[in-house]
Simulated scan of single mutants.
Amino acid sequence: MTGGLTGLSGLTPEDPGWAELALCAQTDPEAFFPEKGGSTREAKRVCQSCEVRQECLEYALGNDERFGIWGGLSERERRRLKRRIG
Rank of each mutant, 00 (worst) to 15 (best):
L73S: 03
E14L: 10
G4I: 08
P13D: 10
R66L: 01
R84W: 11
E55G: 03
Y59V: 00
A31Y: 13
W18G: 04
R79K: 14
E20H: 12
L8G: 06
E20A: 11
R79S: 08
E20T: 10
T40W: 11
E35Q: 14
V52W: 10
T6C: 06
L23Q: 10
T6F: 11
F32V: 01
I85A: 06
A25N: 04
G3N: 08
C50G: 01
R79N: 10
A22Y: 15
T12G: 13
R78I: 05
G17E: 13
G10M: 05
G10E: 10
C56S: 12
W18Q: 06
G37F: 05
A60E: 02
C56V: 08
T6L: 03
A60R: 02
Q48G: 07
R53H: 04
Q48H: 13
R53Q: 12
T6G: 04
K44S: 02
L57T: 03
S9G: 05
P29N: 14
E77N: 08
G10C: 05
L23V: 03
Y59L: 00
P34M: 11
Y59H: 09
D64K: 15
W70N: 05
A60F: 00
E75A: 15
Q26A: 09
G68Q: 09
D64L: 11
F33H: 14
T27L: 01
E65M: 02
I85T: 04
M1V: 07
C47P: 07
A25R: 11
G7D: 15
R78V: 07
L21W: 04
G72L: 05
D64I: 04
L23T: 12
R84Q: 12
K82D: 08
L5G: 07
G86N: 13
E42W: 14
L61A: 04
L11A: 11
E42Q: 14
S49D: 07
C24R: 08
N63F: 12
V52C: 02
F33S: 05
K82I: 01
Q26S: 07
G10W: 10
R76Q: 15
E55T: 01
G86K: 11
G10T: 10
R45Y: 06
R66H: 03
E55M: 00
T27P: 02
M1T: 10
P16F: 00
I85F: 05
G72E: 05
L23I: 01
L5K: 11
G86Y: 06
R79Q: 14
T2I: 09
G38P: 03
R78W: 08
G37W: 08
A19P: 04
T6K: 15
E42Y: 12
T27S: 10
T27N: 13
G10D: 09
G71T: 09
F67H: 12
D28S: 09
W70P: 04
P16V: 00
P13L: 07
P16D: 01
A31P: 00
T40C: 08
S39H: 05
L5D: 09
N63C: 06
R78P: 05
C56Q: 14
K82P: 01
G7C: 10
A60L: 02
E14P: 00
R41C: 04
L73F: 01
G17H: 14
K44L: 04
S39C: 00
E55L: 03
G4Q: 15
L5A: 13
G37H: 13
